[in-house]
Amino acid sequence: MRIIDAHTHPVFMHDGATPAAARRLVAHGRAHGIVKMVALGDVLVHGRLPSAAQCRRINDETAQLKRWHPDYFIGFCCLNPTLGARAVEREVERCVTQHGFRGIKLEISNNARDACMGAVMAAARRWNLIVLQHTWSQTNIHQRRFHSDPADTAWLARRHPDVSVIMAHLTGCGYRGVLEAKGLPNLFVDTSGAFPEAEILDFAVQELGAERILYGSDLPIRETSVTVGRVLGAHLTAAQRHLILHDNAAKLFRL
């Protein structure tokens, strides 16, 4: 079983930034069949509105992981879109040209519908990057001013059909979130987020097709055996499992 994990935070609240910790994580991943991890950065270490310098430090840590394990980690560039177009363009260009990052990670600096996202999506288009948007149902959280609901991330994908968008956290998006993602071929959903609630992955495959779903763990917040186990425990064909665990990500990330 070969797995690509599309959603990880190898460095989390400063933990994991040493060569030894990175080696341990790679060994851990390989023991679970994970052949590559998308490293999204220590995205909340400076709060929800990191400065440009803080974004650079987060991305430099991701780049360091890539240098230590170039065949294992795929880097995504952490951004704070509210810093403005110039800061976004500069950091994306730096991450792509100097570090070979493949995507952009957006946390909760702003809502996916905000005007500042225009520069982010333009940069993604220019550099052929994938945009992974943190997403969680706001039905019970009530932070929509800066926290994207599945409806917001779907809106973003609909508005930018030429950019591939990953709606993070299938479980956090819930059944309503899955339905929001319907009919948007450039919108993918990762399986991360919260506890392994039964049946929701089955529902997502039924409504979206296995081709639109990527395995993601959100480690270290979640346990790898659980996040893989929820895919293996769903009522899927072997071909569907293979798509979700590996092939969709390999195709999307051009591996």
């Binding site: 659980v226 929820r230 293996l232 425990g233």
Partner: peptide
């Protein structure tokens, strides 16, 4: 495992693969 609300395989694997 919190079956049936949670996926049983995933919950058992938390222990089995520890």
């Amino acid at each position: 495992t919190n079956t049936p609300l949670f996926d049983t395989r995933a919950q058992v694997d938390k222990l089995r693969l520890a």
